[in-house]
C-alpha cells in the first residue's frame, strides 16, 4: 500500500492503495467517481476513457503509481457542472445513448477529438472513435452528435 495524491477534476484526492492499482479502480471503487466505466480492462473498449492533461487515456491501463500528482485528470463528472458541455448537449439532441454504459467514454473521446480537430470529417471521426466500443450500436448517432457538437462549439467561438 502507498499513498497517492491525484488532481482529479481540479480537486486534490488522497488515496491509499496497492501500487499497481489501475486508475480505473481508484476512480470508481476508491473515490466513487463511477461515471468512468469498466468494460475490458485491457485498453480495447474505451469505456474507461478519461483525460490526462487533456489527452484521452484508458484509465484501466494506467497504474496509479505511474501518475504524477501534477497531472490533471478529468473524468465525465468534471466535464461540466450540469451535464451541459456542448458535446453532452449534442448527445442529447441526437438521442445517442441506448443502454448508456459506453457513453461516458465515448463523450470523453469525442471531446478530445474536437479539442484537437474542431471540424473533423466523417472519416476522421470514425478513425478517432474506433477504440470506443458500443454494443448497442449507437455509432451512427454518435457520429451525428459529434458533427452537431462541432457546429455548436464553432457557433460559440
Amino acid at each position: 500500500m502507498a499513498a497517492y495524491s491525484l488532481n482529479i477534476n481540479n480537486k486534490i484526492f488522497q488515496v491509499d492503495v496497492e501500487e499497481d492499482t489501475s486508475l480505473l479502480w481508484v476512480l470508481r471503487e476508491h473515490l466513487g467517481l463511477t461515471g468512468t466505466k469498466y468494460g475490458c480492462g485491457i485498453a480495447l473498449c474505451g469505456s474507461c476513457t478519461v483525460h490526462v492533461d487533456g489527452n484521452p487515456m484508458r484509465a484501466c491501463a494506467m497504474p496509479v503509481n505511474g501518475l504524477d500528482k501534477n497531472q490533471k485528470i478529468t473524468t465525465i463528472e468534471g466535464l461540466s457542472e450540469n451535464g451541459d458541455h456542448p458535446v453532452q448537449e449534442a448527445w442529447i439532441e441526437a438521442q445517442a445513448p441506448q443502454c448508456g454504459y459506453c457513453q461516458s467514454g465515448q463523450i470523453m473521446q469525442a471531446v478530445a477529438l474536437l479539442g484537437e480537430n474542431p471540424n473533423p470529417t466523417k472519416q476522421e471521426i470514425k478513425a478517432y472513435m474506433n477504440g470506443n466500443l458500443c454494443r448497442c450500436g449507437t455509432y451512427l448517432r454518435i457520429l451525428k452528435a459529434i458533427e452537431l457538437a462541432a457546429g455548436k462549439i464553432a457557433a460559440k467561438t
Binding site: 463511477t34 461515471g35 468512468t36 473524468t75 465525465i76 463528472e77 466535464l79 461540466s80 450540469n82 451535464g83 453532452q88 448527445w91 442529447i92 438521442q95 445517442a96 445513448p97 448508456g100 457513453q103 461516458s104 463523450i107
Partner: peptide
Amino acid sequence: DIPEKVAGT
C-alpha cells in the same frame, strides 16, 4: 434516461 447517461450519473 438520456440526460443522466450523458452526465455520467
